[in-house]
């Protein structure tokens, strides 16, 4: 440890838990663990995809009507926002590996901002107008101009699927914020960027799920 006024950044002396033989082994183990956790997240959405597929099979008209109510321009905008956030998240790993700390911090914040934009757009331009019009799930449904009796079910599927996805976006944003706090303390760099990698994987998964949700909900008519 130096006694100079500026401390060496923490990433230059990465520690690892004592039951691992090396930092590289801990990094690999953390990655495998994260992929296993991503597996569980995908299977959580599997139930929602299954419900969607089953009900689309049973009520094609209702689901076709339902997808027409959705604005695919907003959906496309949200998709592109998430894709860009995925790009900045992947770049974060690159910047950590190349010790570009300022770009790392900026990209982390930009990713959070993209997530916030996604949620805001969804809330302000999709959920709130639709809810106000009475397009609500199940027994809360009040929209008077529905043409198919099973449209409330479409809205149930829509709200649960996008709602649970938005919850994951929120969780991802919080996790990235903690990584940002660590980055400010100089925790991440070429010697140690495990946290960035792990949270990055989670964020990419959130994006991956949206990549499939978007055509299923908005584009298939």
């Amino acid at each position: 440890m130096s006694t100079a006024p500026t401390r060496e950044p923490a990433w230059q002396h990465p520690t690892h838990a004592e039951h691992y033989r090396s930092h590289a082994e801990e990094f690999d183990a953390c990655k495998i663990g994260m992929w296993l956790f991503l597996t569980t997240e995908v299977l959580l959405f599997a139930g929602l995809f299954c419900a969607y597929a089953i009900f689309r099979m049973k009520y094609p008209t209702a689901f076709s009507n339902g997808s027409h109510y959705l604005n695919s321009n907003i959906g496309m905008l949200n998709t592109i926002i998430l894709l860009v956030s995925s790009y900045t998240m992947a770049s974060c790993i690159r910047y950590a590996q190349l010790n570009e700390q300022r770009k790392l911090r900026f990209s982390l914040l930009f990713t959070i901002a993209c997530g916030a934009a996604f949620i805001l757009i969804k809330f302000l331009f999709e959920y709130m107008p639709k809810w106000a019009q009475g397009k609500r799930p199940g027994y809360l449904f009040e929209y008077p101009f529905a043409t198919d009796p099973h449209e409330p079910l479409w809205w149930s599927v829509y709200y649960t699927t996008t709602g649970i996805h938005a919850a994951h976006v929120l969780i991802g944003m919080i996790c990235i914020f903690f990584i940002y706090l660590g980055a400010r303390r100089g925790k991440y760099g070429p010697g140690h960027y495990t946290g960035v990698e792990i949270v990055g994987l989670y964020w990419h998964l959130v994006d991956l799920i949206w990549i499939f949700l978007f055509p299923l909900l908005y584009l298939i008519h």
């Binding site: 790993i93 990055g200 990419h204 499939f212």
Partner: peptide, 16 residues
Amino acid sequence: SIAVIKGTLVLLFFMQ
């Protein structure tokens, strides 16, 4: 199929 292509790109390159 386009969704699968996009997903594969994210998996291969962004998720490395």
